[in-house]
Write a protein that binds this DNA or RNA. Structure first.
Length: 698
DNA sequence: GAGCACTGC
């Protein structure tokens, strides 16, 4: 159990009169083999619930141990002490849940253990799914190194755009999405004798789908008397009961190597979490050695930039008063790669780093030097509303699991401290786990993928079933696009072609329809851009300048043609990186779009779509967009406001649109997001007469 | 007048 010390008022929160109560949390040192685990797990276990994957820098337990060989290092990992019992359990059970703490080495070691024990048979493959590309790639490279083989031979990986595997590959790391793709052509996943679903606690849409798909494959192989499929579900949370129940399987616990993290809660409830976090940061700054860096979790770009300005001001006032120098780094995904890397660099001696981050810092990356974490207990969360098609983005309280994840960020490299700017009572009221994403997103794409595998989404046995509304809307959407028909829904030829594309089905429809409007090339470009991240950079300080510079790409037809213009210029630019910098564009995201476009072009060829280009007749492109996004129209009202045609919902043109401030009669939008207002984004002007023409054909 | 984080042969 966690050691609850007496309240310690040393950590008073300046200005607000409240203080932190203190209690230490010790890492669990139990290794238990148990079928009813939840009682054994209390808070302290979760101080170490974050992953050991996600980038080479996270494998510090493997590196730089002078004079210890790689093999000796491996044998020091906690998982090794347990290898015999682990193998025994895996042999005895067709499905096993493994709860492994950070640093237990489960992700890298268990596949190797299984292979060397002959568990994969003579030729079967061990597949390990990861939620993120970077993790799949970096872990595979690491394991290949441990096996002393080049990546792609015995050990390989498969992620979007990159298949580094060969017929010799026996250990294969892949993203969840890739595994689903494989299931679409082989429902029993016959290449694999063992499948490991890693990071299952993250509950990504892909893992949630795979939980059901792999379990079904396992049963089908049984029925068809094929070689058995072993399933291992690896997770890092308390929420084990759910997994053991769903799979009717036992769970095994692995000790981790997390350092001790001391916990502090505020004694009084705080009404301004940003302010509380900053006050806390400067208290730490005045009291701690310079080499101890600080990480604050906040919710978004705007909030972080404002906090950074405030923090820099205070730091300036403290300059020359005998404190270490303090450098402030914002960190969120909309920053350029270069700016993000700044936050990861170790701070020079005598200088302290203060990182203000969104939950990028929660999962994907480890920031070196962090010894104190300040958790505000809030996060921005997106929820999809199925009947209106509306996405809602709002600030929510984190779950307990997320709070522990953040806490663990302080104990990656050494013992650390975590300051929560909320009370213990408030913490107790947090929900245990975040709502799984599958219950918060549009299901049209998933429904199509499942149908290709041979599964009807309306009867699919989800671990957490999405709302009926969401399922029905997804099927209705596919029907409207012509991808399915009948009840139970059957795949049409069009639907099968659509499933080839890794896109929202409405986007795929745009691509398929574009051939009739002679603009396949343009549709591929615009859809590639829409399916990736935002390519526009808007540094707060230079917003006006950014807008002015980029205005040369603007089209009075709307944002889609504007995107097309940017892309056409980008591919022609010789010095792409500096060109992006000059034009306030996001190099990484544009490169990604180029990759997606290349992939989509290849798929279009595979689908035998006739290539075409409308050149400068971009009206064709807008007509093609209308065919996939015909539900997404907004109409100007007499009072100069807009109403979404299908839902009759009042909407506002987002200020980022080139059509902002212009009042076209009818616009098509790509998505609609509710923040302070209900904003429609990525727009094109639509000629109302196009709608009538379309209905004549129907 | 303003955009949490991931991801897909």
């Amino acid at each position: 159990m966690g050691v609850h010390d007496n309240a310690d008022s040393k950590y008073s929160l300046m200005g607000s009169g409240s203080s932190f109560s203190k209690f230490a949390v010790k890492r669990s040192n139990v290794v238990v083999l148990n079928d009813s685990p939840s009682k054994l797990l209390k808070h302290e276990d979760q101080t170490s619930t974050q992953r050991e994957q996600g980038g080479a820098q996270q494998h510090s337990e493997f590196t730089d141990k002078i004079s210890i060989s790689l093999q000796q290092q491996r044998k020091q990992l906690p998982v090794y002490k347990l290898s015999k019992r682990l193998l025994e359990e895996i042999r005895r059970n067709n499905t096993l849940i493994i709860i492994g703490e950070t640093g237990s080495g489960k992700t890298t070691q268990i596949p190797q253990l299984l292979l060397s024990a002959g568990m994969a048979g003579s030729s079967g493959c061990i597949g390990i799914t990861q939620p993120r590309r970077v993790a799949a790639v970096s872990i595979a490279r690491r394991v290949a190194q441990e096996q002393n083989v080049p990546p792609g031979k015995l050990v390989g990986y498969c992620v979007r755009f990159e298949d580094v595997t060969s017929p010799q590959t026996r250990i294969k790391y892949l993203t969840g999405g890739m595994m689903i793709r494989e299931a679409m052509t082989d429902e029993v996943l016959s290449d694999y004798s063992i499948i490991i679903l890693d990071e299952a606690h993250e509950r990504s849409v892909q893992t949630d789908v795979l939980l059901g798909v792999t379990r079904r494959a396992q049963k089908l192989r049984n029925i068809k008397s094929l070689s058995p499929l072993k399933l291992i579900v690896m997770s890092a949370t308390i929420d084990v009961d759910k997994f053991t129940k769903y799979f009717q399987a036992p769970a095994i616990y692995l000790e981790g190597r997390q350092h001790m993290v001391k916990m502090y809660h505020t004694k009084k409830s705080q009404n301004d979490y940003t302010f509380s976090a900053l006050v806390t940061a400067f208290q730490i700054h005045r009291e701690s050695p310079a080499n101890e860096d600080i990480l604050i979790f906040l919710t978004g770009q705007e909030e972080i930039e404002a906090a950074a300005v405030a923090a820099r001001q205070v730091a300036k006032q403290l300059d020359g008063k005998g404190y270490p120098q303090l450098k402030v780094f914002p960190l969120y995904s909309a920053l350029s790669t270069h700016q993000q890397l700044e936050a990861f660099k170790p701070s020079p001696p005598g200088m302290r780093k203060l990182v203000l981050a969104t939950n990028v810092a929660e999962t994907s990356v480890t920031i070196s030097g962090i010894r104190s974490v300040i958790d505000t207990g809030v996060v921005k969360e997106k929820t999809h509303h199925p009947t209106t098609g509306l996405d809602i983005l709002r600030i929510e309280k984190v779950s307990k699991a997320q709070a522990w994840q953040r806490t663990g960020r302080a104990g990656r490299e050494a013992s650390g401290k975590c300051y929560r700017t909320y009370t213990l009572e408030e913490f107790e009221k947090f929900k245990e786990m975040p709502i799984p994403e599958i219950q918060r997103c549009s299901l049209a794409g998933i429904a199509l993928q499942l149908l290709v595998i041979g599964i009807d989404i309306t009867t699919f046995d989800f671990m957490d079933k999405p709302p009926d509304d969401a399922i029905n809307t997804a099927v209705a959407c596919l029907e409207k696009l012509g991808a399915v028909k009948g009840s139970p829904p059957q795949l049409t030829a069009l639907g099968r072609t659509m499933s080839l594309f890794p896109l929202d089905p409405r986007f795929t429809k745009v691509i398929l329809a574009s051939t009739e409007h002679n603009c396949l090339e343009e549709a591929l470009i615009v859809i590639a851009l829409l399916s990736g991240e935002n390519i526009f950079l808007d540094p707060v300080a230079k917003r006006q300048q950014a807008m002015a510079v980029r205005s040369r790409f603007s089209s009075d037809e709307g944002d889609h043609v504007t995107l097309l213009n940017v892309y056409r210029h980008y591919v022609k630019a010789t010095q792409k990186k500096s060109w992006c910098q000059e034009n306030f564009l996001h190099f990484r995201n544009l490169e990604y779009a180029v990759n997606v476009k290349r992939q989509l072009t290849a798929l279009a060829e595979k689908a035998k779509l006739e290539s075409s280009s409308c050149e400068n007749n971009t009206e064709n492109l807008r007509r093609a967009l209308l065919e996939g996004l015909s539900e997404n129209l907004a109409e100007l009202q007499r009072d100069q406001t807009y109403v979404a045609v299908t839902s009759r919902h009042p909407v506002t043109i987002h200020p980022s649109s080139v059509l902002h401030g212009i009042k076209p009669q009818l616009v098509l939008f790509t998505d609609v997001i509710l923040t302070n207002r209900c904003y429609i984004r990525s727009l094109s002007i639509i000629d109302p007469t196009w709608l009538h023409k379309k209905s004549e054909f129907d």
